[in-house]
């Protein structure tokens, strides 16, 4: 399999400078190795901190228990479940796994195919909700933009959907996605969808930056 690599830019929060990064249209062994070697120790430290601060478990970021090797093994070689990764400064900065088998829920586009973002996670050192100042900004936006671009490439006209973890609800509203409310079929997480028009507006805004 040939992996397509695109050049993207992230923001180094400490210096305010742009950082060159690779957007790769796959999640490979190197990403799984980075997850085990670099992400997990930071996640474990964050969990220890949450316990020490007696933060109720219900308020912990839900993605802390995500096991990427398991997620990737489950969909290995399956056309319907592509993945993306962002690599910068020699290490994986974010991962996304998508599902192309689902249909839209938003009344104006119900039943039409979309790119469903099954999992999207940025490296723990880039997440402000884990306590420290993030190192790099823009990883989640790069991955979401890749999902919308894939939707165009597949002929789905930019339509994407996802169930949001509570700490990300405001972000998805801010970028213009339609909030279809809590979904009892998915742990009551809020379901967001991007329409053809919203995708066009999203790209026009991104290009204007």
């Amino acid at each position: 399999m040939t992996v397509e690599v695109s050049k993207v830019y992230l923001l180094d929060v400490a210096t305010g400078e742009g950082v060159e990064a690779e957007l790769r249209d796959a999640i490979e062994q190197a990403q799984i190795d980075d997850w085990a070697k670099h992400w997990i120790p930071v996640v474990l430290a964050a969990i220890q901190d949450l316990v020490a601060r007696q933060v109720p478990r219900a308020d912990w970021p839900q993605s802390l228990h995500w096991n990427w090797p398991k997620k990737i093994t489950r969909v290995q070689g399956m056309l319907a479940f592509p993945g993306f990764s962002v690599v910068a400064q020699g290490v994986t900065q974010g991962l996304a796994q998508l599902d192309l088998t689902r249909g839209c829920q938003e009344p104006g586009q119900k039943g039409k195919p979309l790119v469903y973002v099954e999992y999207l996670e940025v490296a723990p050192w880039n997440r402000s909700e884990l306590g420290a100042t993030p190192r790099l900004r823009g990883v989640g936006t790069v991955l979401l933009t890749a999902a919308i671009a894939l939707s165009y490439e597949e002929g789905f006209k930019g339509r994407i959907g996802l169930h949001s973890l509570p700490q990300a609800d405001a972000f998805y509203r801010r970028i213009g996605m339609t909030d279809l409310g809590p979904d009892p079929a998915c742990q009551n997480l809020r379901y967001f969808e991007m329409t053809v028009e919203q995708a066009r507006a999203f790209f026009e805004k991104e290009e204007g930056r």
Partner: peptide, 16 residues
């Protein structure tokens, strides 16, 4: 009905 090209229908069918 699905608002996608015929190629996209067939690629979707293959995935499913």
């Amino acid at each position: 009905r699905k608002d996608i090209t015929k190629t996209a229908v067939l690629r979707q069918a293959l995935r499913l």
